[in-house]
């Protein structure tokens, strides 16, 4: 902040220059802090115990005990959570925006709660309160993950809805003769695509990395497996960890770029027309 200060009477030109230097410095430090650990993690995964370059960790992954099971469990949980969260949150958020504007504040408050309430305390309560048959199923985690993702999902959807004039769009669609479901399918959802997409991305990222609840519910999801396996072989564990990270990034990039090329295509179509 101090670097921002400029003495009175200094001409604008050097000040602009100084601001640019200051900004470069801040961004540089941030980049170092966020990129060096990534680089370190990657380098460690591609080393063997002697510190030499090696792909052994990569090759060894599939044959490790428990890996496949943990991997598929995480994938299954991620997608059931995604479906659950979208089915619950999308209609509710849209409906509240359209018909119950006074409930919006309440919804905002309720969806912040999962940020404030520690997941570790929440799972503590769940383990006591859930019926036995549900505790026996890994999908109890999916049900809880829907709660955990709520803040991010609601915020994404809310931002998406606020960016468009939902009420006018719906009224226009209805006045042109579309019924409720047609309006939802052809007008609301396409316009909310960006919001739904970012909600989905955040959901997947959160579930694929969740450790607290899974480990205390005693299910070996991918993060739990990695943690347990580090005692066996640190390089393999780190390699899996980095791969899961990269996998999440790739997933996000693909989804975001799909959306972008989609919107670009429709824009081009509009230009031709």
């Amino acid at each position: 902040m101090v670097a921002l200060t400029s003495a009175a009477g200094v001409a604008p030109a050097p000040r602009r220059h100084r601001v640019r230097v200051w900004r470069g410095l801040v961004l540089g430090i941030a980049a170092a802090y966020f990129l060096i650990p990534l680089y370190a993690g990657l380098r460690f995964s591609f080393q063997d115990d002697a510190g030499h370059w090696s792909l052994y960790a990569l090759r060894a992954i599939p044959s490790q005990i428990g890996f496949t099971g943990a991997f598929w469990l995480s994938i299954k949980l991620a997608f059931t959570t995604l479906v659950g969260t979208l089915v619950l949150m999308v209609p509710t958020t849209i409906y509240v925006h359209l018909h119950l504007p006074r409930v919006r504040r309440l919804l905002e408050f309720v969806t912040v709660l999962p940020i404030v309430i520690p997941p570790i305390v929440l799972i503590l309560g769940v383990l006591r309160a859930a019926p036995i048959w549900l505790k026996a199923s890994p999908y109890l985690l999916s049900l809880m993950y829907v709660i955990l993702t709520m803040p991010f999902v609601y915020r994404s959807l809310d931002a998406g809805i606020s960016a468009i004039d939902l009420k006018t769009l719906v009224e226009a669609s209805r006045s042109l003769g579309a019924n409720g479901p047609q309006t939802l399918w052809r007008v609301i959802l396409p316009n909310l695509r960006a919001g739904i997409l970012s909600a989905s991305v955040l959901t997947l990222a959160l579930v694929l990395g969740e450790f607290t609840m899974a480990s205390l519910d005693l299910w070996t999801t991918l993060p739990v497996w990695i943690y347990q396996f580090q005692q066996t072989d640190g390089h393999i564990a780190t390699m899996v960890s980095m791969l899961s990270l990269i996998g999440t990034w790739v997933l996000i990039t693909v989804m975001v770029s799909l959306d972008r090329s989609e919107s670009r295509r429709s824009r081009r179509k509009a230009e031709v027309a």
Partner: peptide
Amino acid sequence: VLANFGGINLTFMFIA
């Protein structure tokens, strides 16, 4: 993405 980051991945990166 980073705001939701944490746990084991972060631990490994910082150990390295």
